[in-house]
Design a protein around this nucleic acid. Structure first.
Lengths: 154, 154
DNA sequence: CAACCATACTCGTTTTAACGACTATTGTCA
DNA sequence: TGACAATAGTCGTTAAAACGAGTATGGTTG
């Protein structure tokens, strides 16, 4: 997350309820992301990189890099170099398809899987530590509300 | 927000409720931020810059730049150059304090205020468009839940 | 008052992200 | 089939963010 707002207190004008939600979302997400980033740093991984690896773990047969881009937010052009960095570290591999020679298939390597495996536990623990106090009930409400919120937006 | 996860579908393992919330938060915030960024782009402003300006609007007497940094997430060192860019555009002004000559006071300029004023309406409209469909009730629940979530962390 | 620590920024450098233009294949249809 | 458009990635460049070290000023204390 690009990190943005934190408090903005001092600005006395109370915004619309919609804006309030937006600001709260931003602050909360930002705070949580910071925690995750700290955990990932132990493996020298950015959260974007972590995400790519997780996406690839979910697709053992590999994915064309356009598909990766579309599952993330970052645009096509940037994925190339993101993958470059991961490939340099042997966490993924790329190979050009023989059928459609335009597409490049990307797969996670054994090294990549191991790295993810090392992170699984700390990441889960981090999430529990940050959000566990909410309890099932509220976690569920929150998830539901967010789904509804997102469903409408384009 | 640095833009990160979007879908991650394909990864069949259903995570903990905490992780689910985290992912939903990330996706939602990301989607909403994207919308805001689009609006800000009309004035060639990044969301970080927008935030600084809003913070400063709330503090007519100016703020030392360390205080700005602490109200945002970004670290001290980076605020300097962020302000550099804003100053170059005459949106803020800086002057060294006479009392404590270490601190630099930052103020928003008339130009800066005008720019914000031009954005106020579109930004509000954007938020309503994105989240208005939730209705008072759910907006409020969401805000409350987020506050609770954040209260505990760190 | 002199040495020392803390504070408040600034500067240098390396990574990343963002935007645009460019290349290579494939698919379409006149 | 031959021109044209669409698709899939890559490359170049500029702008931000991240991390660390450095500078100046102000407070503290022996």
């Amino acid at each position: 997350m690009k990190a943005t707002v934190k408090s903005d207190k001092g600005d006395r004008r109370i915004g619309s309820p919609e804006e309030t939600v937006f600001l709260e979302l931003t602050r909360t997400t930002d705070m949580l992301s910071r925690g995750l980033a700290g955990i990932l740093k132990s493996e020298d991984l950015s959260s974007t990189q972590y995400n790519v690896l997780r996406i690839l773990r979910g697709a053992p047969d590999g994915l064309p890099c356009g598909e990766i881009a579309s599952r993330m937010i970052t645009r096509d052009p940037d994925v190339t170099r993101l993958l470059d960095r991961l490939e340099k570290r042997k966490l993924i591999s790329r190979c050009r398809e023989t059928k459609d020679r335009r597409t490049v298939m990307v797969r996670i390597t054994a090294d990549g899987l191991q790295l993810l495996a090392r992170l699984d536990e700390p990441v889960q623990a981090g999430h529990r530590k940050q959000l566990g106090h909410l309890g099932r009930e509220r976690l569920r409400s929150l998830t539901d509300l967010l789904l509804v919120a997102r469903s409408q937006v384009l």
